[in-house]
């Protein structure tokens, strides 16, 4: 299972802070397409973190079982 964490306005759009997907392997591009079809995340500015490290959305990356993905809207600390 792949875990996805949502924050800020994306958590509002997904109506959840996190979910797990049945899939055990997919590309980052496929994952983002899937999430866009579910929650229209394309309209928000966000960065992606895989296993708590920021990655480029365009990176050819395979997401597999037990990976932790997070969609991070602009930071607002301080």
């Amino acid at each position: 299972m792949i875990t996805i964490n949502y924050f800020g306005n994306i958590a509002e759009a997904a109506q959840s802070d996190s979910e797990t997907l049945e899939q055990t392997s997919m590309s980052l591009a496929e994952l983002l397409d899937l999430l866009d079809s579910k929650y229209a995340i394309g309209k928000f500015p966000f960065q992606v973190a895989v296993n708590r490290k920021i990655v480029s959305k365009q990176q050819a990356l395979n997401i597999s079982d037990s990976d932790e993905v997070a969609l991070l809207p602009p930071f607002a600390g301080g």
């Binding site: 997070a70 809207p73 602009p74 930071f75 607002a76």
Partner: peptide, 23 residues
């Protein structure tokens, strides 16, 4: 901290509406 730490801020207005803060 402001640029790199994943912290998010929901600005709550006096009419209870809100918006998401962007640094």
């Amino acid at each position: 901290v402001k640029e790199e730490v994943p912290i998010f801020g929901k600005e709550i207005f006096d009419n209870a509406d809100h918006q998401w803060k962007v640094n």
